[in-house]
């Protein structure tokens, strides 16, 4: 029984990944948007640049003032980005890794609409497989795609100026797991929204409706501390926020990373994902029933 179940999921995930890797264009197309954000926010508006004081000014100041200014500056950076050693580009590029996983998860969750449209779904429904397998395989393959896309983006962001300072093997594994969880929850969300539709347009609308607002209502572009309180409230239930936190803590902060805050962020992300996943699977299975 369990072996059959795993076999079914395996086969369907294989199908999705085969199609994904067989179509490099999709991989490239999907990476363009996060890359644009990185270029736009990370390079054009370099926030750290705003706080840097030109050397000729510094040289004219008495040494004790310079010391005070730099202490103040470090405090500010630590308050904003969690660590004085993080530059804004690295801060937002890691945020974009989360966004990448988020996008890939969502688009993976939409592929069922295409199966419905081509009639492939009917073929799946008459096969002796569990409904859960159909739904779960979409989600699992979507999160695998999230991981691939995020890793690719990481490889591109490094030569552009992303300064990695991993906090150790455990935290790195934690960040991989969090990207996977984010992909899983977003595909669950998209799947349950689009499970009944045949129309590509509906999906696109749903995608745009969720996409940008959730991105801005998170800490991927700017720290939570500078948000108005209502936005902070949304950001603190947004899985993007926790994923970005975990990525920053484990990839940028080196030895100054706090293991306990990594773990608590991960626990919250796990909680949110479990809710998304539970509701997503339940709703999607009902959605697979005859209309």
């Amino acid at each position: 029984m369990v072996r059959e179940f795993i076999g079914e999921i395996n086969a369907l995930v294989w199908r999705e990944l085969k199609k994904f890797f067989g179509n490099p264009w999709i991989i490239v197309m999907m990476i363009i948007q996060p890359l644009l954000w990185i270029g736009l926010f990370g390079k054009a508006f370099n926030l750290t640049g705003l706080f840097t004081i030109p050397p000729e000014v510094l040289n004219n100041l008495p040494p004790y003032v310079t010391q005070q200014v730099s202490a103040l500056f470090n405090q500010m950076m630590a308050r904003l980005f969690g660590s004085s050693s993080i530059d804004y580009f690295s801060f937002m590029a890691t945020g974009m890794l989360a966004v990448m996983a988020f996008f890939a998860g969502m688009s993976g969750g939409m592929s069922l609409t295409w199966d419905r449209r081509t009639g492939y779904l009917n073929k799946l429904l008459v096969a002796p497989i569990r409904r859960e397998s159909i739904v779960l395989s979409k989600m699992i393959s979507a999160s695998m795609r999230s991981l691939v896309q995020a890793s690719l983006l990481l490889l591109i962001a490094m030569p552009l100026g992303l300064k990695l300072s991993p906090a150790g093997i455990g935290p790195v594994l934690l960040s991989i797991a969090s990207l996977f969880l984010l992909g899983l929850s977003m595909s669950a969300l998209m799947l349950m929204i689009t499970i009944r539709t045949r129309r590509q347009e509906t999906q696109m609308m749903a995608m745009n409706l969720i996409n940008l607002p959730l991105m801005f209502a998170s800490n991927v572009l700017y720290p939570k501390s500078i948000m108005p309180s209502w936005l902070q409230a949304i950001a603190s239930v947004n899985p993007l926020t926790y994923t970005a936190n975990i990525l920053r803590g484990s990839l940028l902060m080196g030895s100054s990373a706090s293991m306990s805050s990594l773990l608590s962020d991960f626990a919250i992300l796990l909680g949110i994902s479990t809710v998304f996943l539970g509701i997503g699977i339940a709703v999607s299975i009902v959605g697979l029933r005859e209309k």
């Binding site: 079914e8 086969a11 199908r15």
Partner: peptide, 16 residues
Amino acid sequence: ELTGYENILLQARLYH
């Protein structure tokens, strides 16, 4: 997007 062979292989796996 799959080959003919892969289509049948997938079916075989779905029918255990």
